[in-house]
Amino acid sequence: MVDYYSTAPMIARMVEQEPDTRQLSNVLKAVSDPTRRSILTQLVQEGHIRVTDIAAYFDMSLNSVSKHIKVLEAAGLVSRQTMGRTHLISANMEPVSLIDEWFTQLRSVWDIRLEKLDSVLTEKNQNE
């Protein structure tokens, strides 16, 4: 019989070893807030927007908007450009793929194994 408790450190290490773990956490934290989700939606739909326009659109102080933008930036979801004295931000959707990947992997270990069996047998067919 396998020793249950000795495997806990291995599992903890499995999670640590994922290189994108910290960024995934930052992305999930960023989109956990409804205001930030709205900001991100606006950016994706409209392209570049001035920070001051975002504040006006959401009827928020520049200070509050800046805090939200910092969180989105930390997640890599937003990038900043300055043109003269104008600050523009735009969305970067690449980090969203981390969420996709995590959800795709979030399935039973037996589904992972059956999928692997499928690909091993199918590639075998192709080689014969």
Partner: peptide, 24 residues
Amino acid sequence: TLTTSRHIKAARNIVFDAWLDPEM
């Protein structure tokens, strides 16, 4: 209980034997 299933494009005897083959 967990139930899952998959359609595999390989003959039944091949899919069956894969489970008893250590290399597979």
